[in-house]
Computed example of a mutant assay.
Amino acid sequence: MQSAAALLSILSFPAIDPVAIAVGPIAIRWYGLAYVAGIMLGWFIARRMLANTALWPKDTPPCSPAHLDDFLVWVALGIVLGGRIGYILFYDLDAVLAEPIRAVQIWNGGMSFHGGFLGATIAMILFSRRHAIPLWSLFDIVASVAPIGILFGRLANFINGELWGRITDVPWAMVFPTGGPMPRHPSQLYEAALEGLLMFIVLQILARVFKALRRPGTVTGAFVALYALARITVEFFREPDVQLGYLAGNWLTMGMVLSLPMLAAGLWAILRARRASGR
């Protein structure tokens, strides 16, 4: 039972309209704008990093700015298709099998980060082979700016009032429009801070200060491992998807299970990069 003081300390949820712009029947949502903004800002920063030859092995960037421009379409398709397919497979398969039209209704569940990650990885592999670009360096370019997209995406989740956290009495708890009458952790903001802002700062320091891009695979491994750790941490505060619930006890979630292989892969990539560079 929450105390009166705790209830009085609950923050009001800022009721921001999920639709940013509406013209007749056409509606542009913050969620879609977040994806576009994340990809475009990431592309801009990646271009600046390519121009800084001192960051790369033998002072030679792994690809040209024109390659990066072409890659923009590939990675966007990989993120969107992988994210939606991943959500269906990992979280919503039974509902989609029962009602196939639900597969294209992105407002029913949305996207899965882990699916988007796999989709983007496949796009990078195909693009690197097509244009003879060193794969691990392409991974590193994308990994170094990917947290920007995660940051914007989680802020859009917050605006939508979705993916909220577990019931709590912390002073910054909020009552979400679709989360029932009880105050909850604003776990979307936790994810925006950890998986987005903090990871972006750490990876940029690795790339620019410690010159980690000179050891291809290091930034990629750091991104994957750090995301897994951040996601596992936030899962202790985030409410699991209602159709899945907890996989064990009242703590193990699908997000944790999917993040464990990422943690192992990230650590492996860092060790592999060290061995390859002889350091």
Rank of each mutant, 00 (worst) to 15 (best):
P62T: 05
F44T: 15
I39R: 01
A51L: 10
N52Q: 15
P62Q: 00
L41D: 00
S64Q: 12
V36N: 09
G32N: 07
A37T: 11
F44L: 12
S64E: 09
T60R: 09
K58Y: 09
A34G: 11
P57W: 04
G42N: 04
S64I: 13
P62A: 03
P61A: 15
A54Q: 12
L55S: 00
A66C: 13
L33R: 12
I39P: 02
G32C: 01
T53P: 12
A51G: 14
N52E: 12
C63M: 13
V36R: 04
G42Y: 05
M40E: 01
T53C: 13
R47A: 10
P65C: 01
W43Y: 13
T60D: 10
R47E: 04
L33E: 06
T53D: 13
S64N: 09
R47K: 15
L55W: 10
S64F: 09
W56P: 07
W56K: 03
A54G: 10
G38W: 04
T53S: 12
A37E: 05
G32T: 06
R48A: 11
A34I: 08
F44I: 13
P57I: 00
S64P: 07
L50E: 00
V36Y: 05
M40N: 07
I39S: 02
I45L: 14
G38Q: 05
Y31R: 01
L55Y: 08
F44K: 15
T53A: 15
G42I: 03
P65G: 01
I45F: 14
P57Q: 03
L33P: 08
T53N: 14
G42K: 03
M40T: 11
A54P: 11
W43F: 14
K58S: 10
Y35I: 08
T60M: 09
W56I: 03
K58V: 09
A54R: 14
F44E: 08
I39E: 06
L33D: 05
A46V: 06
A51F: 02
P57L: 01
W43S: 04
A51S: 09
C63F: 09
I45A: 10
S64L: 15
I45G: 03
V36K: 04
L50A: 03
M49S: 15
P57H: 00
T53Q: 12
L55M: 08
A54D: 11
L41K: 06
W43H: 11
G42D: 01
P57V: 07
C63Y: 10
A54E: 09
S64T: 10
I45D: 08
R47Y: 11
G32K: 02
C63A: 13
M40V: 12
L55E: 01
I39V: 13
I45W: 13
P57E: 01
P65T: 07
I45R: 14
R47W: 10
P65K: 07
P62F: 07
A34R: 02
G42H: 02
A46G: 11
S64C: 04
A46L: 09
Y35K: 05
P62G: 06
A66I: 15
G32F: 01
D59Q: 12
A51P: 07
L55T: 02
W56M: 06
T60L: 09
L41C: 03
T53G: 13
R47T: 15
R47D: 05
P57R: 02
A54L: 11
M40W: 08
A66Q: 15
Y35H: 13
M40G: 02
A37S: 14
F44S: 15
A66W: 14
I39L: 12
I39M: 05
I45T: 11
L50R: 07
G38R: 06
L50Y: 02
